Simulated scan of single mutants.
Amino acid sequence: MKKKVLVAVDDSRHSENALRYAAGLHGTVHEMNHVLFHVEPTISQYLLDEARTKPSANAELQKLMRNSHDAARTMLDRYKALMVSLGVPEDNVQPMSLPRKFGVGKDILEYGTALVYDAIVVGRRGISGLTEVFMGSVSTNIVDNSQLIPVWLVDGKGPSNAVMVAVDGSESSLRAVDHLAFMLGGNSEISITFFHVAPRLGDFCPIDFNQKDTSNLEAVIQQGGKACIDRFFAHALKKLKDAGIEERQVRVDVRDGGFRVGKSVLEAYRKGGFGTLVVGRRGMGKQFFTGSVSRFLVNQFSDGALWVVP
């Protein structure tokens, strides 16, 4: 089945990183089409108002709009040529530029949702050349507000065949596995590592248990957590097998629990030499991969791509 991804771009190195990552997946993701999507700058409200009453202002406005569109077309043609030079067939790359309507992030989501894309690819620092704060807010806004489409945040190096999936046994984690299976199914070269942080009593309750005998409670938590994650892994392996990914390509890494789940995930990712980290945006309640952990990953992630699946 063909996959289509929306690569959000502007004239910045962060967008070029996103584009290179998408192009690098050409040999990994079968039948992937790319739309290079650019949101053109906003026209001054003053000019819009003046153009309604003054022919000279209207002429100036039309000129600005033509120049903006021509600059966008030149940039998109350059990006398309780059993707083709990186091995992506020309027919698999389509440029698209539209005037800004609501805001950069919202316009990207509106377009991606309306045309039912399989993923939105964006540089982790955003798609604007303005301030650091604004650049970060664009990508964060897309992640926070994408209700249906997975968002791939790219920072740094291109993809490798080593993929890490951070899981907690939740439905959100299973959707992340489903997205991974759909995008990478049928590829015999990739390796997938499921990374799980086993829960502890402290993950479920903020009470200080240091002075009390909690061995029985800890045993209950560990036993229940193991049963949950074992069932999860069985479902996840079946999804991958149905997608054409063999069990020999998959390994499981389970670590002891702790409060710094996000930090544990990033340390394992960096030490393991992975190129892609996949995570569900929400977890199973107030523990494991909650919004705070996925936000931590969005803010701290580097050197690869973070797939955030809603």
Results as ranks from 00 to 15, higher is better:
179 H>I: 01
305 A>P: 09
29 V>S: 11
197 V>A: 11
228 C>T: 14
205 C>A: 03
119 A>W: 06
272 G>A: 13
110 E>V: 07
300 Q>F: 03
63 K>D: 13
14 H>Y: 14
98 L>C: 07
274 F>G: 10
34 H>L: 14
119 A>H: 07
293 V>W: 00
165 V>C: 13
122 V>H: 03
2 K>H: 06
141 N>A: 13
232 F>I: 12
227 A>L: 07
267 E>A: 15
7 V>H: 04
42 T>K: 14
4 K>Y: 00
72 A>Y: 07
169 G>L: 11
251 R>F: 09
127 I>W: 01
153 L>W: 04
279 V>P: 00
250 V>D: 09
84 V>D: 08
269 Y>I: 06
140 T>A: 12
93 V>Y: 08
32 M>S: 02
93 V>S: 05
149 I>W: 03
133 V>A: 11
88 V>F: 00
304 G>N: 08
25 L>V: 06
176 A>T: 02
276 T>V: 09
308 V>I: 00
148 L>N: 10
60 E>Q: 10
11 D>G: 09
1 M>H: 03
180 L>T: 10
263 K>W: 08
225 G>Y: 04
198 A>C: 08
153 L>V: 03
156 G>H: 15
111 Y>C: 01
294 S>D: 01
211 Q>D: 14
102 F>Q: 15
196 H>V: 12
22 A>R: 03
152 W>D: 02
117 Y>E: 00
113 T>A: 12
286 K>H: 10
40 E>P: 00
189 E>Q: 15
94 Q>E: 15
232 F>E: 08
269 Y>T: 09
29 V>C: 11
134 F>D: 12
90 E>P: 00
75 M>T: 06
156 G>F: 15
278 V>N: 09
159 P>H: 08
224 G>V: 02
142 I>T: 08
123 G>D: 05
134 F>H: 14
38 H>T: 05
195 F>K: 14
66 R>G: 05
27 G>S: 08
126 G>W: 04
152 W>Y: 12
43 I>S: 06
85 S>C: 09
177 V>S: 07
143 V>H: 00
35 V>R: 08
68 S>F: 06
265 V>K: 02
255 R>C: 12
276 T>R: 08
162 A>G: 11
199 P>E: 09
185 G>N: 07
15 S>G: 14
102 F>I: 10
56 S>I: 13
135 M>V: 00
157 K>D: 15
237 L>G: 05
43 I>H: 01
218 E>N: 14
83 M>I: 04
